[in-house]
């Protein structure tokens, strides 16, 4: 066992863990933050995307011990209390989800995308930027729409630093 400390959704956490524990397992099993999902074993589906020090990463391909001292934001940390983050609201408004399983990873990827590409990101760029996120339900059509709308809404909403 080894000790690890990090900040998750603004809260300091410390735990004694098996070194084999992946960040996603640490979040789901130790912290019971089950919004981050596991959809594959090969870093391709993107269901496990969280923000590590403000950048989207795949939590299935990082050891929790590698996140010592880091700031992690998960889907559970995105909303401001009961007020949804503009990207969350856009996914609901534009029917950007069906079964909901890929959704947390999609939303975290989308927020990161807007952080990097700006709020007037075009459809083509959004589609390209989703190369690491798989969805089996929506055919991506409404996800792309939701992200474009969410991006615009993020520009309008006062930018919250959302624990990162």
């Amino acid at each position: 066992m080894a000790a690890v400390s990090m900040t998750v959704n603004g809260r300091s956490v410390t735990a004694d863990i098996d070194p084999r524990t992946l960040l996603v397992q640490f979040l789901r099993e130790d912290l019971r933050l089950t919004g981050t999902h596991v959809g594959c074993d090969t870093s391709q589906c993107g269901a496990c995307v969280v923000h590590l020090d403000g950048k989207a990463v795949k939590a299935c391909t990082i050891l929790a011990l590698q996140c010592e001292g880091a700031h992690v934001t998960t889907i559970e940390g995105l909303a401001n209390g009961t007020e949804l983050h503009p990207m969350q609201a856009a996914f609901r408004e534009h029917h950007g989800l069906q079964c909901g399983f890929c959704t947390p990873g999609m939303i975290m990827t989308a927020v990161d995308l807007v952080n990097r590409k700006g709020s007037d990101v075009d459809e083509h760029t959004i589609r390209h930027e989703l190369e690491g996120n798989l969805c089996r339900c929506t055919g991506y059509h409404n996800i792309v729409k939701a992200i474009a709308a969410g991006a615009r809404a993020m520009a309008q909403a006062p930018l919250r630093q959302a624990a990162e």
Partner: peptide, 9 residues
């Protein structure tokens, strides 16, 4: 290379 999340790591 890879995808945005992979490129971050």
């Amino acid at each position: 290379i890879g995808d945005p999340a992979v490129r971050h790591r």
